[in-house]
Design a protein around this nucleic acid. Structure first.
Length: 219
DNA sequence: CGCCAGGCCGTGT
DNA sequence: ACACGGCATGGC
């Protein structure tokens, strides 16, 4: 799927020349939110000169809420971002480089304890901001894997679990060199979102889908 | 106008 | 453990 999607869409350049911290802001702000809206919030923060750890640290909660308003859920996302900065300050001296040097499993556990950080956000931060080779699963991948019959919900469950999708991705790239793993996870997740937006939303639009998942009659 | 977006969390069963 | 509803805004 990675190869088919890459041939069809080309490199997605996800978060190429962004700072680590801007990537993290985006990871929080895009939760169940269109990226277009996230860009508006990031634009507001940029005007305020607050696309940095120091910028957010010194900003009042009320102002932060106002600036990120376009991307929704601001009563949750603003305190969540503050909590991330507080954690970074207290445990890593405010340095994302120091944080990134910690073991992947330790970081994942720590991130999951933060308010407003679930599995996808934790993995997105690990992969796109901290450079760790961690697969990222999302609702699009869930639909794609489901509609292609790649995984079925575990017995007694109605829904494919996040971990099943992560395992599936992990196994799919298992034979690739470890040094290339992070870049492959990076590109694959971005491509998944690209094809998902175009063809695999809540309602399938299989017409012209490069994955040729012609299931529109079944859904 | 209604649906939906690059989820997460508290609550009820 | 898991399904379910709430959270908020703006694009299309």
């Amino acid at each position: 799927m990675h190869d088919v999607l890459f041939a069809a869409y080309g490199p997605q350049h996800w978060w190429p020349v962004k700072t680590q911290f801007e990537v993290i802001l985006g990871a929080y702000l895009t939760q169940n939110t269109a990226w277009k809206a996230v860009e508006r919030s990031l634009g507001n923060l940029r005007e305020a000169g607050a696309v940095s750890v120091a910028g957010l640290r010194t900003m009042s909660l009320a102002r932060l809420r106002r600036l990120i308003r376009p991307s929704g859920f601001y009563t949750r996302k603003a305190p969540a971002l503050k909590a991330f900065v507080a954690m970074l300050d207290e445990e890593y001296g405010g340095s994302l480089e120091k944080m990134a040097a910690a073991p992947t499993d330790v970081l994942r556990e720590r991130l999951l304890k933060l308010p407003g950080v679930g599995q996808e956000t934790a993995d997105a931060i690990l992969l796109y901001a901290l450079g760790h080779p961690m697969p990222v699963a999302d609702e699009y991948l869930r639909r794609i894997a489901d509609r292609h019959g790649l995984v079925t919900p575990a017995p007694g469950r109605g829904r494919i679990a996040y971990e099943q999708l992560a395992d599936l991705t992990q196994r799919a790239f298992e034979t690739d060199p470890e040094s290339e793993r992070a870049q492959l996870f990076n590109e694959f997740h971005a491509l998944t979102v690209a094809v998902g937006k175009a063809h695999c939303g809540r309602t399938a639009r299989c017409e012209g889908c490069p994955l040729a998942c012609d299931l529109k009659d079944s859904y």
